[in-house]
């Protein structure tokens, strides 16, 4: 099996099977554009740690997809889901870097998984909690915030009840 080298922005090389690397459509199109003999693909937007994590995903998914004969589709899907669940249990910051890398490298499955991970972090949280979790700075003027809050009131049952009280 052909291997290629993916080079992160900080110069770290990762040797990876081409099949796994090509889960990234960006890498795939870069390989198509570059000469046949090219084995090093520079990825100037991904750092070493994040690239390692992305490649972990690609390698695992390629390996699981290849296991067509020994397990059923259902079992494979379940295994993949369980692995994905463990894989995405990372810190907020790491998840953020991962989603940016997945977007740049165009790995649809990973991007979807990361978006789901971020959505899970947001789910059920108040605006203040969302701000704390993602380090957002509240830059609204007081009337502006009040206006947005009032517009959203109908959907926020708790706040509605609080307002009644």
């Amino acid at each position: 099996m052909r291997s290629i080298i993916l080079r992160s922005c900080d110069g770290a090389d990762h040797v990876v099977a081409q099949e796994a690397a090509c889960l990234s459509k960006t890498v795939q199109s870069l390989l198509e554009e570059l000469e046949e003999s090219t084995l090093v693909v520079p990825l100037p937007n991904v750092c070493d740690c994040t690239l390692r994590k992305v490649l972990q995903y690609c390698t695992q998914h390629t390996a699981l997809q290849r296991r067509v004969t020994d397990i059923s589709d259902e079992l494979r899907t379940r295994e993949m889901e369980a692995w994905d669940k463990r894989y995405i249990m990372v810190s907020t910051d790491e998840l953020y870097h991962l989603v940016m890398a997945a977007h740049y490298l165009n790995v649809p499955g990973l991007l979807e998984l990361c978006c789901e991970g971020i959505a899970n972090l947001i789910r059920g949280k108040s605006p203040e909690h969302v701000r704390q979790c993602f380090g957002l700075v509240k830059n609204f003027e007081a009337p502006e915030e009040e206006n947005i809050r009032r517009t959203n009131l109908w959907a926020l049952v708790d706040e509605k009840e609080q307002a009644k009280k």
Binding site: K138, N139, F140, L156
Partner: peptide, 20 residues
């Protein structure tokens, strides 16, 4: 957008209230 689409309405609105 993709994150937004996975959230129910109250969470979407909460997210909109995060910052400008």
């Amino acid at each position: 957008q993709s994150i937004f689409q996975q959230l129910p309405l109250p969470d979407r609105l909460a997210l909109r209230q995060g910052c400008r």
